[in-house]
């Protein structure tokens, strides 16, 4: 398993929650600790299969500067 959005390895994918009915697991929710994507393993492939997802929605956590701050932290203000 890897992140459907940034392809981070399994060790970065945190199990968030298991949906159960009468003790049986219906689905699992995961969270990518690298790109902050959340997904459920029961979702349609357009949302959770890296190959089928629209490329436009890929995120590269190694390029954080690509993603602007909507409110820069105060520490950033002070450094500037």
């Amino acid at each position: 398993m890897s992140c459907p959005r940034c392809q981070a390895e399994e060790k970065h994918c945190r199990l968030e929650h298991e949906g159960r009915e009468a003790g049986e697991i219906i689905w699992k929710v995961f969270y990518c600790q690298r790109c902050a994507f959340t997904w459920r393993d029961s979702e349609p492939t357009e949302s959770i299969d890296y190959e089928k997802r629209d490329e436009w929605f890929q995120v590269d956590p190694d390029q954080p500067d690509q993603y602007p701050h909507n409110i820069p932290p105060a520490k950033l203000h002070k450094n500037k």
Partner: peptide, 24 residues
């Protein structure tokens, strides 16, 4: 305080997705 995470995209009211940003 001062912590940010990547947020988005989210399908917004103009009918298109907003991009990914660093958000509190």
């Amino acid at each position: 305080n001062n912590k940010r995470t990547l947020e988005g995209p989210f399908g917004e009211f103009p009918g298109s997705y907003s991009g990914v940003r660093h958000v509190p």
